[in-house]
Amino acid sequence: MHMADALITPAVGGVMMAVSAGAIGYSVKKVKEELDDKKVPLMGVMGAFVFAGQMINFTIPATGSSGHIGGGLLLAALLGPYAAFLVISAVLVIQALFFADGGLLALGCNIFNLGFFACFIAYPFIYKQIINKSFTPKRITIGAIIAVIAGLQLGAFSVVLQTLISGITELPFASFALLMQPIHLAIGLIEGIATAAVLCFVLKSSPTLLDGNVTVEGESTNMRKKTVTILLIAALIIGGFVSWFASGYPDGLEWSMERVAGTAELEAEGSTYHAAAGIQENTAFLPDYGFKDGGESSALAGTSVSGMIGGGITLSVACLAGFIITRFRKKVKCNECQS
């Protein structure tokens, strides 16, 4: 569910980065208030734990598929939501830098989708409410499963929205949502079961680790208010940005057509047009008869041919330069070694 840089626009990336940065700033403030220096290495090790945990797949009997723990809710149940949010964000930063799992500009999106919902929605409003301060295996199991599923559903829906607003892919809202939500229901169920199992194990073997999260009466309602405020602000910012962008730019397709129509270079050729139409009829994958008149499309073909050839040449020159530099450096090194 990691968003890639290529699928978002700078505006969406920037807004989500700002929202996530705000949430990180607030968490830092909260963690600082209650931080004893013992928690510092603990948080670091827990980040590494989640990282390693996500690589361990558990096989699901009779299906042939497998799943792993997600981490967000598990961390929240052990460290509290603020510390957990920082830990999961740090994990996402490392995944983006070293493993190309999600882009650097999409980091805001990923922190929001995978961290915010688990730590600030699913944990306080679902998990904690179901546990209701009595830590029994049954409550932990039900709470963890429902909370993980809810967190993932929200995250998946957020991915759909971010992709849709960016408009880089053509997936219609309904089909994309219908694709994402059920898949993440299944993933959430497995993740939820695994998370519940780990928490039950901790309850049995070292229950004090869970106790840290029993908060004083009143604090949860206070936090609820704050969460709602953060959400409202986020909604306002996103809403404002989207409408601004929607009005500022015409439809991407229109814009491209407009731009292209102004730079006509080549004339349409009848035979290629018909040959192309013949191929189109036989293949569903290839485009249908969409363009209004031959002139416009061939104009694009003209600029595109030069673009393609030019691009090819540019790329070749760049590759050649790279090759020469590498060879030259190796040669220099060899000479140095010999002398």
Partner: peptide, 29 residues
């Protein structure tokens, strides 16, 4: 990830953009 997310484009955006060497190329592609 990007491959599969982008794979839908050729299916949903099938209006022809240009004809290249006799092969129609859609906006989706």
């Amino acid at each position: 990830f990007s491959f599969f997310a982008g794979l839908s484009n050729p299916f949903f955006d099938r209006e022809t953009a240009l004809i290249l060497l006799g092969i129609p190329v859609s906006w989706g592609i």
